[in-house]
């Protein structure tokens, strides 16, 4: 388990770095698919197999394919200067590096908190991973579920209006 965690984290972090460093958008899209698969591995380590399957289907399947399709439609060969100038990059890297350091320091300083819920790994495995998510989604969280369907409808109409000539 420990070895798998380190393998997944190295793959995820290196592929995330390559997404923002490589020049070609298509290569970026392929690296982000790799990053999605590494994150799906994290979900399996965290005993959430249903979310791992959704991650691969929705992110690596649907969203990445839409991105690659749009890259195919647009002619991106003539974009010059894909990265901003040195001054802006230096400020950005210092700010983001400080933020990372602060969050990691905060995480190390945070105290222990006792688990409050009843859904331990043995309970989840006894009921079934998919079943427990389905029960929550259609009983306690049914109103956000309906709102999400309306949001998807609005997104479809909006995308149609934007892409229409």
């Amino acid at each position: 388990m420990e070895a798998l965690f380190y393998i997944f984290s190295i793959i995820a972090i290196v592929s995330a770095l390559m997404v923002i460093l490589v020049k070609s958008p298509l290569t970026s899209a392929l690296y982000i698919i790799l990053c999605f698969f590494a994150l799906a591995g994290f979900y399996i380590l965290l005993n959430m197999q249903f979310l791992a399957a959704m991650q691969i289907m929705v992110y690596a399947g649907a969203i990445a394919v839409i991105i690659v399709l749009v890259i195919m439609l647009l002619n991106l060969a003539k974009i010059k200067g894909a990265i901003k100038d040195f001054h802006q990059i230096a400020i950005s890297i210092i700010a983001i590096g400080l933020f990372t350091l602060e969050v990691i320091l905060y995480l190390n300083a945070a105290g222990e908190k006792k688990p409050t819920g009843i859904y331990t790994n043995t309970v989840i495995n006894k009921i079934g991973n998919t079943q427990i998510i389905g029960e929550f989604l259609f009983t306690k969280y049914v109103f956000p579920f309906e709102v999400a369907s309306i949001l998807l409808l609005v997104a479809v109409i909006g995308a149609y209006i934007f892409a229409k000539k």
Binding site: P25, A29, L76, I93
Partner: peptide, 9 residues
């Protein structure tokens, strides 16, 4: 988001 100029990236 901060350092790239390409909308897709």
């Amino acid at each position: 988001v901060l350092i790239r100029k390409n909308l897709i990236t």
